[in-house]
Structures are given as C-alpha cells and as structure tokens.
C-alpha cells in the first residue's frame, strides 16, 4: 500500500466515528445498550429503538424501546426466580447485596462518565454513585434485621401463641424515578430484593444509560438470573401493563404525576396488587432510604399456635 492510499484509508476510518478521528485513527468500540431479563442481555423483542441525545444534541446511544412482551418475559423470569430468592437465607441475601455495592464501587468511573453525559456535573455524579453504593450497603445490612424489628408476638386472650411475621409479597414491578439515572434505580431495587422479592424495573427514559450498566453490575454479583430485570423504554407505553399484569403482586411508582398515580391505583385493583407510591422530590436525601421501604413490599402473616395452659 503506498503512502497516498494509506492516508486515504485513515481518513475513512476516522470519518466513521462521528467525524472525529480517534487518537490512533482506530475505530471506537461503542457499547450496545440492551435490556436485562432473566440474567441475560437481549435486545427488545420489538426491534424498536429511540435515540438518546446529550444536551448539545449529540447522539449518546440507541436505547431499546421495550414492549409489553419484553415485560411479559421479564415477569415470567421473575416469577420463576422468586421461590429460590426468597428461600435464600437472609444472611446470604445480605452478602449478595453487599457484593452489588462492591461491584458498583469498582465500576465507579464508568457510572460517573454516564451520569455526566446525561447532564450531571462531575461532582454531582461522584456524589450520586457514592450514595448509591452506600444505599446498597445500607439495605444489605437490613436483610437479616427487618424480620426481628418488624415481626411481633401478639398478646391474645385465648391459649394461643400468636405471632406475626413479614413475608415477601412476590413479584414487584417498578417505575423508577424519571430524574435520577442511578440512585433512583438503586432506591427501588434494593429494598425489594432485600426483602426477598423479585423485581422488574423500568428505567428513566431520559437517563437510561446507567440502568443497562447497572444490569452488568448485578450480573456479576451472584444475583440469580430473573431476580432483577431491567427494561428501558417509555413509561407512557408500559405503565398500564406494569399495573395490570395479574401475575405481579406489587407495583412501585416513583414521581408525582397525578394522572399516572390514578392509573396505577386503578389498574392495580384488578388483582389487588399492592400499589406503593413514592413522591420523593430528592432521592439523594437520607429520607429516601429506610426499613419501612422494605416493609412496603411485605405481607404480614399471623399464626395462631395452640399452647397448653
């Protein structure tokens, strides 16, 4: 290859990367943002995408526009994974949550990069990642404690030993906060799985990058496939399916849009789903994590056990 031909090739290579030629004229290897279902990373079955731009209008990525069928697949996976996840010891669930925190910490730079691309300043992004790690550790700690704290032995008139214990409600669907890329996801996933539930989360449609990357973190943290499922797409399209699926036991709704809240509550009534609404305006605050958020997704079982005099 002579000199002229060689320089031509480099220009062509350079032109592939949005007109920028890489440092060595090498093509960038860009990440394909897919969804996370049953421990795997499929593309949406619908084949639809939307383009995610940064503030200046540059394309960041093509994001999967998940369909109701993707959601259906995710529910099947979550239902299958649920007995196994509930059956793990609280201590083991705690270890796994802590493991997610470790993995997230290790990938800090990548999350900071994605958050800044989606509009945060570096300081904000650093803070959001730190808080997310801390929140995971916080809920890891709760795994083997909420039972003691919230269960009760009840005084009764008859000769019965009467006690109430918390049991996971089952499969949870969640619409995570629209304005938070990472902390929003962590804040809905951690309390649900700490309490032995499995979950399907719809990520923020404007800030979906972290959701896909968080799926990779979960996938490398000993979380069994199907326990956490992450979809990207439009809330307006999926909200009613998240709320009316008969095999979902609870729905978590984040944000404060009255019309959406009414819809969630109305459709949840079909199978008397637990509808949990969080209107937090700032998910970075301490008030956005507490043990009651675990209890929001628990059912109380009371047992009457006959005893002698």
């Amino acid at each position: 290859m002579d000199q002229a031909e060689k320089s031509k090739t480099e220009t062509i290579n350079g032109a592939h990367v949005n007109g920028q030629s890489g440092k060595s004229g090498r093509l960038d290897v860009l990440k394909t943002y897919k969804i996370y279902i049953d421990g795997k990373f499929p593309r949406t079955e619908s084949g639809r995408y939307y383009i995610l731009n940064d503030k200046s209008g540059n394309t960041l990525a093509n994001i999967c526009q998940s369909s109701r069928k993707d959601f259906r697949e995710a529910v099947v996976a979550a239902r299958k994974a649920q007995p196994g996840w509930t059956g793990k010891s609280a201590y083991n669930r705690s270890q796994i949550l802590y493991r997610i925190a470790e993995m997230l910490e290790g990938r800090r730079a990548q999350f900071v990069d994605e958050l800044t691309k989606q509009g945060s300043t570096t300081a904000q992004a650093e803070n959001e990642v730190s808080l997310s790690v801390d929140r995971l550790v916080y809920y890891a700690g709760w795994c083997d404690k909420y039972q003691q704290v919230f269960s009760a032995v009840n005084p009764v008139e008859s000769s019965h030993f009467n006690f109430s214990v918390a049991e996971p409600t089952g499969v949870v669907s969640a619409l995570s906060p629209e304005n938070y890329g990472l902390i929003g996801l962590v804040s809905v996933i951690a309390p649900a799985v700490a309490g032995g539930n499995t979950i399907i989360v719809l990520a923020s449609s404007e800030k979906p990058l972290c959701a896909v990357t968080f799926g990779e973190v979960i996938n490398s943290s000993d979380v069994p496939g199907g326990v956490v499922n992450l979809l990207t797409g439009y809330r307006s399209e999926l909200i009613s399916h998240f709320a009316n699926h008969m095999d979902v036991n609870a729905i978590v709704y984040c944000d404060d849009v009255q019309e959406e809240i009414s819809k969630v509550k109305e459709l949840s009534a079909m199978n008397v789903k637990r509808a949990v609404v969080y209107k937090d305006d700032n998910w970075m605050k301490e008030s956005s994590h507490n043990g009651y958020r675990i209890m929001d997704l628990q059912e109380i079982k009371t047992t009457w056990h006959p005893i002698g005099q």
Partner: peptide, 8 residues
C-alpha cells in the same frame, strides 16, 4: 387484554 397468573 391482561396477562394472567396461574394463581387464578
């Protein structure tokens, strides 16, 4: 028009 559960 709604996905079903084996529970029912």
């Amino acid at each position: 028009g709604v996905y079903q559960s084996i529970d029912y």
